[in-house]
Design a protein around this nucleic acid. Structure first.
Lengths: 105, 105
DNA sequence: AGACTGTATCGACGTCTGTCGATATGGCCG
DNA sequence: CGGCCATATCGACAGACGTCGATACAGTCT
């Protein structure tokens, strides 16, 4: 981001990912999934901690999935979600600004 | 984010920052500012590369400023904007997911 | 097969967001 | 002073978003 001005199409793509992170419920969902034992969580573990309805949770999970931040799989009765680390790493790297002190330009 | 499930108030705060990044124009604005010589850019350097009107650019800059991602100052005729590295670093660190295999950081 | 649980989809509603043109504000200069 | 340039604010409008209840779908268990 600091190196070059970020092309228009790349910006659209990245903005879609950041938009998925722009809701408190989705941030907490992502955090719950990432911090869950085994790196994955069943939806049944995710509906409890929130004040919103089950369809709303399902909707937020869909947004995260379509943004490419998580993936999911049905195993029997339950559906499990896990984080896609490469996507988060991409965003994290983008925000990495070289510290200004010293020889920065 | 992986360590602990991210409290509700922290999520609200972080979501506000991510929301500021959730628009392609704002992402490119931020990138233009960060990559500009001297680490700061005059608004007059920022209105050119976009297809949107000047008031819209001004609006987006306000959003970035109110999210705490950039700061600005008037110097004579022009207004200059620069990135606040600590804010971006906070978001970047949050998205840093330890690679699952082995102990890499 | 039928009942029951877990999850997703649908349709609706109020609110928020990005955009614009018009206009206001702040500062330079002739 | 008066005009001009750079930037911000205002008001309006279409479209997107978060949320809900109702309902559909998928799998399991008797």
């Amino acid at each position: 981001m600091v190196r070059e001005p970020l092309g228009e199409e790349a910006a659209v793509d990245l903005a879609r990912m950041f938009k998925a992170l722009s809701d408190p419920v989705r941030l907490r969902l992502l955090s719950l999934i990432a911090s869950h034992e085994g790196g994955e969580a069943c939806v049944c573990d995710l509906t409890g901690p929130f004040d919103v309805s089950q369809p709303t949770i399902s909707h937020h999970l869909k947004v995260l999935r379509e943004a490419g931040l998580v993936s999911s799989e049905r195993r029997g009765t339950w559906v499990y979600y896990w984080v896609l680390p490469a996507a988060l790493a991409r965003l994290s790297a983008l925000l990495q600004i070289p510290v200004a002190t010293g020889g920065s330009r």
